[in-house]
Lab assay of single mutants.
Amino acid sequence: TTVKVNGTKYKFDTPEEAQKFAKKAADKYNLKVVVDGDDLRVE
């Protein structure tokens, strides 16, 4: 599972880890998590 934040992709072994990271990033930058198929985007 990958998470894309500000054009940078981060790869995670499990969707749970990816979800946690995406949520933290979204909170930090005051953005929202967008599900894109198997991957997540923070925008």
Rank of each mutant, 00 (worst) to 15 (best):
E43W: 07
V33Q: 02
A22W: 03
F21Y: 05
T14C: 04
V35H: 09
T8N: 10
K11D: 06
P15G: 04
K20Y: 12
E17R: 05
K4Y: 15
P15W: 14
N6V: 06
V5S: 02
Y10A: 00
T14Q: 03
E43H: 06
V34D: 04
T14D: 08
A25Y: 15
L31G: 15
R41K: 12
N6Q: 07
D39I: 15
T2K: 03
F21Q: 01
A18I: 00
P15M: 13
V33A: 03
K11T: 13
K9L: 15
V42W: 03
D13Y: 07
D39K: 05
T8H: 13
K28A: 11
V3P: 01
V3D: 00
D27K: 13
V5C: 05
K32W: 08
K11M: 12
K11G: 04
N30F: 08
L40S: 02
E16Y: 08
K20W: 11
N30V: 03
R41L: 14
V33W: 05
G7Q: 06
V3E: 01
V3T: 01
F21M: 02
T1A: 06
E16H: 07
K28H: 11
K28L: 13
D36F: 07
D27P: 02
T1K: 08
N6K: 08
T8Q: 13
T14K: 05
D27N: 09
E16C: 05
G37I: 04
D38M: 11
V34L: 08
N6E: 05
T1V: 12
Q19G: 06
K32S: 12
D13I: 07
A18H: 00
D36N: 05
K23H: 09
L40E: 02
Y29C: 11
K24Q: 13
D13V: 08
K32I: 14
K4V: 15
N30I: 04
P15H: 09
D38C: 09
D39Y: 11
V34R: 07
G7R: 06
A25N: 07
V42L: 15
A22S: 02
K20A: 14
D13G: 11
V33N: 01
E17F: 03
E17W: 02
T2Y: 13
A25V: 15
V33S: 02
Y29N: 06
F21T: 01
V35E: 09
K32F: 10
K24G: 08
E17C: 07
K9I: 15
V34N: 05
F21I: 00
A26C: 09
R41V: 15
T1I: 12
K11I: 13
A26T: 03
A26P: 01
V42A: 04
K9C: 15
L31N: 04
K20M: 13
E16A: 10
Q19N: 07
A18F: 02
A22N: 00
D27E: 14
N6D: 06
K23R: 11
Q19R: 13
K9P: 09
A22H: 00
Y10W: 08
A22V: 03
D38T: 11
K11P: 02
D36Q: 06
A18L: 02
D27I: 11
F12I: 01
K23D: 07
K9R: 13
E43C: 14
K9V: 15
E43K: 06
T8M: 14
K24P: 00
T14G: 04
E16F: 07
G37A: 05
T1L: 10
K20T: 11
E43M: 11
D13Q: 12
L31T: 13
F12M: 01
A26L: 04
K4R: 14
D13K: 13
R41E: 05
T2H: 07
A22R: 02
F21E: 01
F12S: 00
G37Y: 04
D13P: 10
D38Y: 10
D36S: 07
V34P: 01
T2I: 12
D27F: 10
Q19W: 15
E43N: 05
K11W: 13
E16V: 07
A26I: 03
D13T: 11
G7I: 03
N6T: 03
F12T: 00
A18S: 02
P15V: 12
G7P: 01
D27Q: 12
N30T: 04
L40Q: 02
V34F: 12
A25L: 15
N30S: 08
F12E: 00
D38I: 09
D36L: 06
F12C: 09
Q19M: 15
A26G: 04
V5I: 15
Y29A: 06
T14V: 03
K24E: 14
D36W: 07
N6C: 15
D27S: 10
K23P: 00
F21V: 01
K32P: 08
T8L: 13
K23N: 09
K4D: 11
P15Y: 15
Q19K: 11
D38R: 10
V5G: 01
D39P: 02
F12K: 00
D38V: 10
L40V: 06
K24N: 12
L40P: 03
V35W: 14
D36Y: 07
G7N: 07
K32V: 14
K28N: 07
L40K: 02
E17S: 06
K4N: 13
D13A: 13
T8W: 13
Y10L: 04
K20R: 13
F12Y: 01
V5Y: 09
K24V: 10
K28P: 04
L31C: 11
F12R: 00
K32A: 10
A26D: 02
A25S: 07
D36H: 06
A22Y: 03
T2P: 01
Q19T: 08
Y10H: 04
K4L: 15
Y10M: 03
V42F: 06
A22C: 05
V42P: 03
D39Q: 11
V3G: 00
K11R: 12
E16M: 08
E17A: 11
T2W: 13
G37P: 03
F21S: 00
Q19E: 09
D27G: 07
F21C: 04
K4C: 15
F12N: 00
T8A: 11
V42R: 02
E17I: 05
K9T: 15
E43V: 13
N30M: 07
V35G: 06
D39G: 13
E17K: 07
K20N: 11
